[in-house]
Simulated scan of single mutants.
Amino acid sequence: MIFAHDTEVALRSAVNLVNTLDADRGELLATGEDLDRFLDEEEFTGSRTHDAAELAAVRTLRARLRGLWSAPEDDAVGIVNALLREAQALPQLVKHDRWDWHLHATAPEAPLADRMGTEAAMAFVDVIRAKELDRLRVCAADDCEAVLIDLSKNRSKRFCDTGNCANRTHVRAYRERRAAG
């Protein structure tokens, strides 16, 4: 394990949120129901307004998080600090549901986008402090722009989990080799 369990969960959630805007599949957070489904899959808890403003705020957060995948370290620090400052983050240890002790930095009644952004920002604090920003990658498939976080020990993850990019790329390379050979 490279990071604490809750950090890895938050990083995967950030990846999944960023990948809800997909070049091929389009907008995957088009409706409130889409957001509900995403939050259930990611096990986000706390208060909700279930209105258009909440959905818009989450989409705005998504774009800000996407910027972390191409930001140099100083810019990434700026994004993370802004997310924490705007949410008035105050880290605290909490234990709830099936989770053992972990960090929350906002109250359960804080706006959804603030809670999501703060959770992601806290995870990215660990990434930045560990000098591991190079683990943030864009899928290596030529026809995919999805993001990923490489949590493998040998830093070998190249393809996203949104589709079958690795398989498509390997089949294409195989066919090209056979055609040339």
Rank of each mutant, 00 (worst) to 15 (best):
F3L: 15
H5I: 02
D6Q: 13
D6S: 10
T7G: 06
V9R: 12
A10S: 15
V15F: 11
V15Y: 11
N16R: 12
N16H: 14
L17T: 01
V18P: 03
D22K: 09
D22F: 04
A23N: 00
A30K: 10
T31R: 04
G32T: 00
G32F: 01
D34F: 01
D36H: 13
F38P: 00
L39R: 14
E41V: 07
G46A: 08
H50L: 10
A53H: 10
A53P: 03
A56N: 05
V58N: 07
R59V: 06
T60E: 13
L61P: 01
R62N: 07
R62S: 08
A63Y: 09
G67L: 02
G67M: 10
L68E: 13
S70Q: 10
S70I: 04
S70F: 11
A71F: 11
D74N: 13
D74Q: 13
D75T: 14
D75S: 08
V77M: 07
V77N: 02
I79L: 07
I79T: 15
N81Y: 14
A87L: 03
A87K: 06
Q92R: 15
D97W: 03
D97N: 13
R98P: 15
R98M: 10
D100G: 15
W101D: 15
W101C: 13
H104A: 14
H104D: 11
T106C: 15
A107L: 11
A110M: 10
A110G: 11
P111Q: 09
P111M: 12
A113E: 05
D114W: 12
R115C: 13
T118S: 14
E119G: 14
A120P: 02
A121L: 08
A123Y: 08
A123W: 09
A123E: 08
A123T: 01
V125Y: 06
V125A: 12
D126I: 11
V127W: 12
I128G: 09
R129N: 10
A130C: 11
K131Y: 03
L133D: 09
R135V: 07
R137K: 14
V138N: 01
D142G: 12
E145N: 00
V147T: 09
V147L: 00
I149T: 00
L151Y: 13
R155Y: 01
R155F: 02
S156P: 00
C160Y: 03
D161Y: 06
D161L: 07
D161F: 04
G163M: 05
C165W: 10
C165H: 05
A166S: 15
T169N: 15
H170S: 08
H170F: 06
A173D: 08
Y174W: 03
Y174D: 01
R175F: 00
R177Y: 01
R177F: 05
G181I: 02
